[in-house]
């Protein structure tokens, strides 16, 4: 299927959804004017992918910052992954946060509580 590749800007994250190379990632800053509109292509892509997923889907989140409206949409993305996992597919969320960023660490832990999917919290340094 077609890949979805969006380069990050000062208010939107980098998005890579590439089933051919088994690369799934959202990273950077997310504070778009309309978060529902911004994330719709991501949700659409995941809906199509779910019909015929790869044997393994490891989805990376590597966020510097996201606003509250984006937090709702990131939960929607995670819910799609939860559904995929519920259908018996091998799914894992890799949640990266900067070593000295307790906010992104907490955010990862909160999503981990809300979503039934294998979830790994990892640190990265800049």
């Amino acid at each position: 299927m077609d890949k979805l590749n969006l380069e990050g800007t000062e208010d939107t994250p980098t998005i890579v959804l590439d089933s051919e190379n088994n690369h799934f990632e959202i990273s950077g800053r997310s504070l778009p004017e309309d978060s529902a509109e911004f994330y719709q292509p991501v949700l659409d892509w995941l809906n199509i992918y779910a019909a015929n997923p790869n044997p393994q889907t490891h989805f990376t989140f590597k966020m510097d910052y996201f606003n509250t409206a984006s937090s709702k949409l990131l939960l929607d993305v995670l819910s799609k992954l939860e559904d995929l996992n519920g259908d018996g597919h091998d799914v894992k969320v890799l949640w990266f946060y900067q070593e000295d960023d307790p906010d992104m660490e907490d955010a990862g832990e909160e999503y981990q509580d809300l979503i039934e999917v294998p979830f790994e919290l990892k640190t990265f340094s800049v």
Binding site: E33, D34, S35, A36, T68, A69, S71, K72, L75, E110, D113, L114
Partner: peptide
């Protein structure tokens, strides 16, 4: 605040104007 944030995140729908109802809590 943490409890309220999580329950609002899980249960609230985005408003027509795209707000998650989480701004003040955050």
């Amino acid at each position: 605040l943490k409890t309220l944030y999580k329950s609002t995140l899980k249960n609230n729908k985005l408003s027509e104007k795209g707000g998650a109802g989480l701004g003040f809590i955050d």
